[in-house]
Design a protein around this nucleic acid. Structure first.
Lengths: 131, 131
DNA sequence: CTTACTGTATTAGGTATCTAGTACACGTTG
DNA sequence: CAACGTGTACTAGATACCTAATACAGTAAG
């Protein structure tokens, strides 16, 4: 599926939420496909089931996942993507954080851009491999 | 000086630490220059003095700042920049995080890169303005 | 010396997060 | 029917971080 980064200050449930969104965006999870059960994914990620449940719950509220009670959780038939405004806002926020750390460690813009391109391709490839 | 982002999951002391490193990297803080006192910066950032003290302490241990006890804190005569290895590692880590969120919100690589270039210039300009 | 300002240290409390354990309602499968 | 696997809910504990309030040692300026 994907990995959890313990050194990432972001809450684990948010990392899971973003990970699922990422796999859907890349097509590794198709609409209607079933996602691992709360307990299975928790065991896989070495994480508490409650933490996974929280992520699934948020994704369900957001229309990304659909729950069939007693049966399982599935990718929604029409998974909701963030609106253009929200998307741009989130992206710009992340970009500022990235640029800030790049400058803080003394990197030039070119290096920062190269590193992003490389990382982007790597993440895509990693997900394709497990699709 | 710079701003604290309460929505950023990163601890405040780390944001301060990075902010100081950023200003030094951009030349807004020259070697030997004095940095605001713990209490002043805390008041400016609307933050507890202990939090600023923690950031200053880490920067001092890292050789970025130098303390003259009872007098104040100054930028070290030869501010230490992260080694190439550490720099690349930190940058790559940040790049992965950024690329991951970019993909999660459904952005293409080109958009992600554009946003980084824009953010980089904006951060530089912002610091130059206050130098 | 007295006052005021430095950085530093200590203690306490509040909040958010993660973990752990248990329980319940629902659906499928035997 | 019984057994099992779903998501969900609840309580309790541990940890990390931020805040708050003091106190102390060193330096500079009056």
């Amino acid at each position: 599926m994907f990995a959890i980064n313990p050194t990432d200050p972001a809450p684990i449930w948010r990392q899971i939420e973003e990970g699922v969104r990422r796999m859907i965006a890349l097509g590794a999870l198709q609409p209607g496909a079933s996602v691992p059960s709360v307990r299975d994914l928790a065991k896989d990620l070495r994480v508490n089931p409650n933490t996974v449940a929280r992520a699934y719950q948020r994704l369900t509220e957001g229309g990304v996942l659909a729950v069939k009670r007693g049966e399982g959780t599935y990718v929604a038939d029409v998974p909701v993507q963030p609106r253009k405004n929200e998307r741009n806002e989130a992206l710009r926020d992340a970009a500022i954080r990235y640029a800030s750390t790049a400058i803080a460690v003394g990197s030039e813009l070119e290096d920062a851009v190269d590193e992003v391109e490389s990382a982007y391709e790597r993440v895509v490839r990693e997900h394709r491999r497990k699709a």
